[in-house]
């Protein structure tokens, strides 16, 4: 198994190959007068092994950027590169953890995880053996025969995480993956994610609306402006030491300083987004 870089590596190394690079990417939905520009000239780069979190008000196009990197969405202008290669079609070597339930409901958790290898040509037996290993790693050794509807929301997320990680993706894209979970489960999932990530340190692009989660997990927090036509307006390096434990790190003074600094950037955008929704509701009512 390719866990070569198991030891802790000091901070992200910018001289390393870029895992993700977005150059002036704009995304437009629809055409003509109805066209809606979701993202305007966004530029971003994620180094290999770097954990980058994107925060921003709701509807600011965070997920849109992620879909561009994944190859699920083509940008109207600009360029997206994954591991130095222009994105065309589905990005090979990228793993995507969705916000909504994305497991195949007709497969057991074991089959859901092993199918990720089987479609890549691994025979059924070894694929199932490795799927068992991965399910054990995410704490679901006793739930291999369950169907998704027989699992809790947190357990489903663990299966989804195993399904993504078993393919050993070079880039991990996460779209508010723990959004629908309750606070305690979220913290535990965050710890699990950090534990698994620290074994081989993939590049991670993590979208969230939860600033605390972003700071606790990432090496760098990127703030996006309110939509439409949202841009990246600020970046903050998170210099908290690793390994981290989410419940502990929230108590550190440095955590609070970062929180304040990033919130001062974010606040105006959140207010703007909120105001827009509010005025939108107002005109509708008239």
């Amino acid at each position: 198994m390719p866990f070569t870089n198991a030891g802790g590596r000091p901070g992200p190394d910018t001289s390393k190959l870029e895992a993700v690079r977005l150059e002036d990417v704009s995304v437009v939905f629809g055409t003509g007068p109805d066209a809606y520009c979701a993202v305007e000239t966004a530029s971003l780069s994620v180094a290999d092994g770097e954990f980058v979190a994107i925060v921003g008000p709701t509807g600011c196009g965070k997920s849109t950027l992620l879909n561009v990197v994944a190859g699920l969405l083509a940008p109207a202008r600009g360029r997206a590169l994954a591991q130095g290669q222009p994105v065309a079609g589905i990005t090979r070597g990228a793993g995507y953890l969705f916000q909504q339930d994305a497991l195949m409901p007709w497969k057991t958790s074991l089959d859901n995880v092993s199918v990720a290898l089987e479609v890549a040509g691994v025979a059924r037996e070894p694929a199932q053996a490795r799927a068992r290993e991965w399910l054990a790693r995410v704490g679901l050794a006793n739930f291999t025969a369950r169907y998704p509807h027989q699992l809790s929301g947190g357990q489903r997320k663990r299966v989804a995480l195993a399904q993504v990680l078993i393919r050993d993706p070079a880039i991990l894209l996460m779209d508010e993956p723990f959004g629908p979970l309750d606070a305690q489960t979220r913290g535990m999932m965050g710890d699990l994610l950090l534990k698994l990530w620290s074994r081989d340190r993939k590049a991670v692009l993590f979208v969230t609306h939860d600033l605390d989660e972003a700071i606790a997990l990432s090496d760098r927090v990127v703030v996006m402006a309110a939509g439409p036509g949202s841009r990246i307006i600020a970046e903050h390096r998170i210099d908290l030491p690793r390994p981290r434990e989410i419940s502990e790190i929230r108590l550190e003074p440095r955590f609070h300083a970062l929180q304040r600094a990033i919130w001062s950037d974010l606040k105006a955008e959140v207010m703007k987004a909120y105001g827009e929704q509010f005025s939108g509701a107002g005109t509708e009512a008239q």
Partner: peptide, 13 residues
């Protein structure tokens, strides 16, 4: 489900 489909695509199916 569009999510299940997108996820399957991301698994390189």
């Amino acid at each position: 489900s569009q999510t299940v489909l997108a996820n399957a695509r991301m698994l390189s199916m």
